[in-house]
Protein backbone atom coordinates (compact mmCIF):
# COMPACT_ATOMS: atom_id res chain seq x y z
CA UNK A 1 0.00 0.00 0.00
CA UNK A 2 1.09 3.50 -0.80
CA UNK A 3 2.05 5.59 2.23
CA UNK A 4 3.53 8.95 3.02
CA UNK A 5 6.98 7.31 2.87
CA UNK A 6 6.67 6.15 -0.71
CA UNK A 7 4.73 8.96 -2.33
CA UNK A 8 6.27 11.89 -4.25
CA UNK A 9 5.20 15.22 -2.80
CA UNK A 10 4.98 18.02 -5.38
CA UNK A 11 3.81 20.87 -3.12
CA UNK A 12 3.66 21.45 0.61
CA UNK A 13 0.90 23.63 2.02
CA UNK A 14 2.13 25.14 5.25
CA UNK A 15 -1.05 26.03 7.16
CA UNK A 16 0.57 25.65 10.57
CA UNK A 17 -0.76 28.27 12.97
CA UNK A 18 -3.74 29.08 10.72
CA UNK A 19 -7.35 28.71 11.79
CA UNK A 20 -10.50 27.52 10.06
CA UNK A 21 -11.16 28.01 7.18
CA UNK A 22 -7.65 29.03 6.07
CA UNK A 23 -6.07 25.54 5.81
CA UNK A 24 -8.87 24.52 3.44
CA UNK A 25 -8.68 27.73 1.39
CA UNK A 26 -4.91 27.28 1.10
CA UNK A 27 -5.31 23.61 0.15
CA UNK A 28 -7.88 24.48 -2.52
CA UNK A 29 -5.57 27.12 -3.97
CA UNK A 30 -2.64 24.69 -4.07
CA UNK A 31 -4.81 21.93 -5.57
CA UNK A 32 -5.60 24.20 -8.51
CA UNK A 33 -1.93 24.23 -9.45
CA UNK A 34 -1.59 20.43 -9.30
CA UNK A 35 -1.92 18.09 -12.25
CA UNK A 36 -4.18 15.06 -11.74
CA UNK A 37 -2.20 12.32 -10.02
CA UNK A 38 0.16 14.70 -8.24
CA UNK A 39 0.32 14.72 -4.45
CA UNK A 40 0.48 17.64 -2.04
CA UNK A 41 1.29 17.61 1.64
CA UNK A 42 -0.91 19.74 3.90
CA UNK A 43 0.47 20.66 7.31
CA UNK A 44 -1.88 22.17 9.89
CA UNK A 45 -2.02 22.68 13.62
CA UNK A 46 -5.67 23.59 14.22
CA UNK A 47 -7.76 20.77 15.64
CA UNK A 48 -10.54 21.38 13.12
CA UNK A 49 -8.30 20.21 10.30
CA UNK A 50 -8.38 16.67 11.69
CA UNK A 51 -11.90 16.30 10.33
CA UNK A 52 -11.96 19.21 7.85
CA UNK A 53 -9.17 18.09 5.54
CA UNK A 54 -10.62 14.57 5.03
CA UNK A 55 -14.09 16.12 4.55
CA UNK A 56 -12.74 18.54 1.96
CA UNK A 57 -10.85 15.75 0.18
CA UNK A 58 -14.03 13.67 -0.05
CA UNK A 59 -16.13 16.64 -1.16
CA UNK A 60 -13.72 17.55 -3.96
CA UNK A 61 -13.30 13.96 -5.17
CA UNK A 62 -9.59 13.86 -4.38
CA UNK A 63 -7.79 11.10 -2.52
CA UNK A 64 -6.35 11.04 0.98
CA UNK A 65 -3.20 8.93 0.54
CA UNK A 66 -2.11 9.07 4.15
CA UNK A 67 -2.37 11.16 7.31
CA UNK A 68 -0.25 11.43 10.41
CA UNK A 69 -0.03 13.34 13.63
CA UNK A 70 3.45 14.37 14.65
CA UNK A 71 3.04 16.10 17.99
CA UNK A 72 0.99 19.22 17.32
CA UNK A 73 1.34 19.01 13.54
CA UNK A 74 -1.30 17.22 11.48
CA UNK A 75 -0.04 16.05 8.09
CA UNK A 76 -2.22 15.01 5.16
CA UNK A 77 -1.02 13.64 1.85
CA UNK A 78 -3.62 14.40 -0.79
CA UNK A 79 -3.64 13.25 -4.39
CA UNK A 80 -5.49 15.33 -6.93
CA UNK A 81 -7.87 13.30 -9.07
Amino acid sequence: METSDTVDVVTTVDAKGQSCPMPILMAAKAAKELQPGQVMLIEATDNGSRSDVPAWVAQTGNELVDSREDGAVLRFWVRKN
Binding site: C20, P21, I24, L25, A27, A28, K29, W56, Q59, T60, G61
Partner: peptide
Protein backbone atom coordinates in the same frame (compact mmCIF):
# COMPACT_ATOMS: atom_id res chain seq x y z
CA UNK B 1 -17.93 34.38 4.95
CA UNK B 2 -16.37 31.18 6.34
CA UNK B 3 -19.02 28.95 4.78
CA UNK B 4 -19.12 30.74 1.42
CA UNK B 5 -15.33 30.71 0.97
CA UNK B 6 -15.07 27.09 2.12
CA UNK B 7 -17.92 26.13 -0.22
CA UNK B 8 -16.04 27.65 -3.16
CA UNK B 9 -12.86 25.90 -2.00
CA UNK B 10 -14.80 22.63 -2.02
CA UNK B 11 -15.86 23.13 -5.62
Amino acid sequence: MILSSTGAASG
